[in-house]
Design a protein around this nucleic acid. Structure first.
Length: 505
RNA sequence: GGCCUCAUCGUCUAAUGGUUAGGACAUUGCCCUUUCAAGGCGAAAAUACGGGUUCAAUUCCCGUUGGGGCUACCA
């Protein structure tokens, strides 16, 4: 059975590039009826961030990239809160807790130290690894010298020459040490990358990688190999930055006598200036997009298309459709610029496809924050702006005028082809006319029909009536159409606002 | 510096040994129209460069240039 994994380091948040890697791994597994596993690689204690794991999981679950095995989120049994969960775009994780699921755990590397120790010992016993006592000062100097001579950098193997028994004694006596891989420098490492095809490296240039750090924690290179094997990973899908460490990993697989999983190295996501996507040039955390009110469906759709596309002209993809059509062979080799404009377009499309009720539900956190959460005509109000907003967080500001007429200048009431006098003449008549309209006819279509007939009868130009009407109702120069607003405001408030306008003139 | 890797409109990309090199976003013109959006119809916009191979290259090969990654007791 196919099993893929996503193995983030909990350094604070989920990067959008990480989301894409996780998504592709997820899609690939699902497509082939396999499993998607989540492992936490927290072997760097210096970069460890509290809540890092929670944040990553929150982002992943928000995007519906949910692991089948490994570190997962499970709902705490707290019935008092269970009805509070909604499908709003903002994540609700108060009643969720992090747990682990599966037979191959633990799935957090810091909990697997004994396992690494055991496998490190095997290497040591077989003579495939050795203790190294070199100080960081010596290593730095070594590197500096190599760089000065324009030589390839790397460990010179000094401690590999030590007598293993003596080394063992020294290490056990407490002398500060690391454990290094005894790299076989002969020949080359050749492997078939699922995206790039055959890639080869000369082994002589591969360093004697540190396997176990002086703090007893494994390095990434050692832990991934051990874990991927022990957890039954069949396909490693990860970022391109890892491709040059494949020879080290391959050596380890060879020493252990394990089968190397299939590998696919994904091209990186880029800034608009083509450098590696970084925080300096915009938002890179999934959380940032979450908070701004991007819909997870939009982000997923967008990110899926950064480096992959079905080869057809279909652009809108649900997760189910992605699972169905995703194909690693169609993933491109070139890095893609993370282009916000396209994301914005996707988000607009997805917002447009929402029903009013869904939109209210998903936007509720922002609406509540703005103090308009409890309004009874929310759905109607929201319908006015649904095609005008790009992200959910813009909604409260956009619909505010419905609940509270903004202050505006009298001259904005005058259409460009009209005049102050004309507005003064028209408004009272319009109020009078609206007064005669039956409450039952107060919907946008009927009202528009009736009003347009009335305008024609009176011989006014359409704009000279509708512009001031719209401004009077919205208090804004740019707004939804006058009849849409009138319907939402209802007859009474419509007339009130027209009267306010009249007083301004 | 060394190693690996990539190269089609501004961006994401499609396609092919022979095409008017297609689509989407963005830009832009027109239409619709009371404004803004949305929508409709158009426009402009690309095979990095130089050599081969070939009747024919954007596609295959080599080189150049440019980009990116790696070169840690970080992942």
């Amino acid at each position: 059975m196919i099993k893929t994994r996503f193995a983030p380091s909990p350094t604070g948040y989920l990067h959008v590039g990480g989301l894409r890697t996780a998504l592709y791994s997820y899609l690939f597994a699902k497509k082939h009826g396999g499993k998607f596993l989540l492992r936490i690689e927290d072997t760097d204690r210096e970069r460890y961030v509290a809540d890092g794991v929670a944040n990553i999981l929150k982002s992943l679950y928000w995007a519906s990239v949910v692991p089948d095995e490994g570190v997962i989120l499970s709902e705490a049994k707290d019935p008092s809160r269970s009805d509070k969960r909604d499908s709003s775009a903002k994540p609700q994780n108060d009643n969720l807790r992090i747990t682990q699921k599966g037979e191959n755990g633990p799935y957090t590397q810091s909990e697997r130290l004994d396992i690494y120790k055991e496998y490190a010992q095997k290497l040591l016993d077989a003579g495939h690894a050795y203790y190294c006592f070199c100080s960081s000062e010596r290593l730095e100097k070594l590197r500096a010298d190599q760089q000065a001579k324009k030589m390839p950098t790397g460990y010179d193997g000094l401690c590999a020459k030590l007598d293993p028994t003596e080394s063992k004694q020294k290490a056990e006596a407490g002398e500060k040490h690391v454990m290094r891989l005894k790299m076989d420098k002969h020949g080359e490492t050749v492997f078939n990358d699922l995206i790039r095809g055959e890639v080869r490296f000369k082994n002589e240039l591969v360093d004697d990688q540190v396997l176990i750090k002086s703090d007893g924690f494994p390095t990434y290179h050692f832990a991934v190999v051990v874990d991927d094997h022990l957890m039954g990973i069949t396909h490693i899908i990860r970022g391109e930055e890892w491709i040059s460490s494949v020879p080290k990993h391959a050596q380890l697989y060879k020493y252990f006598g394990w089968e190397i999983p299939e590998m696919a190295h994904l091209p990186l996501l880029l800034n608009p200036d083509k450098s590696k996507l970084s925080k300096r040039q915009g938002d890179v955390a999934v959380e940032d997009y979450m908070k701004k009110g991007y819909l997870p469906e939009a982000l997923v759709n967008f990110v899926a298309f950064l480096g992959w596309n079905p080869g057809t002209e279909k652009e809108m993809y649900t997760m189910e459709e992605l699972v169905k059509d995703f194909d690693l062979a169609k993933v491109g080799k070139t890095g893609g610029v993370f282009n916000i404009e396209k994301l914005d377009w996707y988000n607009k499309q997805y917002i447009k496809n929402l029903s009013n009720a869904e939109l209210v539900e998903k936007a509720m956190p922002w609406l509540e924050e703005a103090g308009v959460g409890g309004r009874p005509i929310l759905e109607k109000a929201v319908s006015l702006e649904r095609e005008r907003i790009t992200i959910l967080s813009e909604l409260p500001e956009a619909i505010k005028f419905v609940f509270e007429l903004p202050d505006y200048k009298a001259d904005t009431l005058v259409w460009k082809k009209s005049s102050n006098e004309e507005v003064k003449n028209i408004l009272p008549k319009l109020i009078e006319f609206f007064d005669t309209v039956d409450e039952n006819d107060w919907d946008k279509q009927v009202l528009e029909e009736k009003t347009k007939i009335w305008i024609a009868e009176k011989g006014f130009s359409v704009g000279s009536v509708l512009w001031p009407m719209r401004v009077a109702l919205s208090g804004q120069e740019n707004s939804p159409g006058p009849f849409e607003i009138a319907e939402v405001l209802a007859k009474k408030q419509t007339i009130t606002r027209l009267q306010i306008a009249l007083e301004k003139l």
